[in-house]
Amino acid sequence: MDQARGAGYEVVARQDFSDVTFLLEVRHPLLARAARPGQFVIVMASEHGERIPLTIADYDRERGTVTLVIQAVGKTTLEMQRNCRVGTRLVALVGPMGVPSHIGQARKVLCVGGGLGVAPVYPQARGYKESGAYVIGILGFRNRDLVFWEDKFRATCDELIVCTDDGSAGIKGLVTEGIRLAVARHRDIDECVAIGPPVMMKGCAEATRGSGIRTIVSLNPVMVDGTGMCGGCRVKVGDAVKFACVDGPDFDGHLVDFDDLMFRLQRYRETERAATERFNENCRMRSLAAQPVVAE
């Protein structure tokens, strides 16, 4: 019975960018073939796990793999950081979900990634490049230790601006600073894609609002199924209420109600914190138990 329902999805490569950010490359040839920029997957790491949405960071149709970049912030992602080694299997991996990003006729595009959002903006940058656009990448990190994929973006983008909060790499400042630089240099930017934490996407939308650059953001609300069934991911876009999983996840950044999104993202903060603390405590107990008892 289990065989017919699939025995899981094998992790074929892993790379750790920092103590918190890591990359998993998972084998799923059909998914690699179907994935498009802007789409996401839902992952269940274990039988008792929760379903978490992760944006597809890359896909390789030849190798038959999809790449996910994960930040260990809560119980589930911490556990994945600990357990997902090469050769292990994810219990569930379903997708690609959401409406693919519309890579239109834009001639000059800003691709802005903040923190973990750097990963999912990569397929978009590549998509725009392939469609013949002039691509300006803007990547934001807290400091130089957290920087990843700079070379990958350099090989794809026509220009790249790296921003760090403390100035330890690239320019000092937020990605909005990078946007201001790019807009000052290029008067003819048609589109901006911004992916990252909600507060960063809100900043990007504000930064481009005056100049009238069409700005697309990729939203990441709380989700259960990812197929339009629970409605947990509903977001306010203009006057309408949309489900990010089936109507998005891409929306017009100038219309999204980011404050509403940020409040709704806090819904499970308490339970999440309790679960994380419990997990860390369990890990500590386990490592104590694993230490050899020192004789008197």
Binding site: H48, G49, E50, V224, D225, C230, Y268, A275
Partner: peptide, 25 residues
């Protein structure tokens, strides 16, 4: 939505949190 409440509780076993990871408030 009732779908969200029921899915969390039934399929995802949120009522058995923290044995199962899906939260329910």
């Amino acid at each position: 939505s009732a779908n969200e409440l029921l899915t969390r509780c039934n399929l995802m076993h949120a009522r058995e949190f923290p044995d199962y990871d899906t939260p329910m408030q």
